[in-house]
């Protein structure tokens, strides 16, 4: 059986669109992984910050384009490659953004159809 070790796996994600979930504040960063190092710090480009909040029991998602960022290793819960489902989400976000003419997007996520992937 062939194994995939963490470091080679991270290297294989370089140049691809990824999602980095932080340990706190229900925050995710969606962007292109530019580089990683031995600490497993991450450098992302064309980054979108996505924060999930709960208001009156309704899950809300707000996203904002923040460009190129450095994420310090200790904050990271996980990193994964973007899948098709996420692509739809990102498209939805952009569409709303165009209508508003605003960089801040807030949209409601119907409960039960929650896109947050805690187990992945």
């Amino acid at each position: 059986m062939s194994t995939t070790n963490p470091m080679p796996f991270l290297r294989s994600l370089i140049g691809k669109e990824v999602i980095v979930r932080l340990k706190w504040n229900k925050t995710e960063y969606m962007g292109i992984l530019l580089s990683t190092d031995n600490y497993m710090n991450f450098q992302l480009d064309q980054t979108k910050e996505i924060i999930y909040t709960k208001k009156n029991g309704i899950e809300q998602k707000s996203s904002e384009l923040i460009g190129e960022i450095f994420i310090r290793c200790n904050n990271v819960l996980f990193i994964r490659e973007l899948n098709e489902e996420d692509n739809e989400i990102s498209k939805n976000g952009t569409e709303t953004k165009d209508e508003d003419g605003d960089s801040e997007v807030v949209e409601e996520v119907i409960e039960g159809e929650d896109v947050v992937v805690e187990e992945s």
Partner: peptide
């Protein structure tokens, strides 16, 4: 070796 994240800083 490609550049590392701290290079951005």
């Amino acid at each position: 070796q490609a550049e590392e994240p701290l290079d951005l800083i």
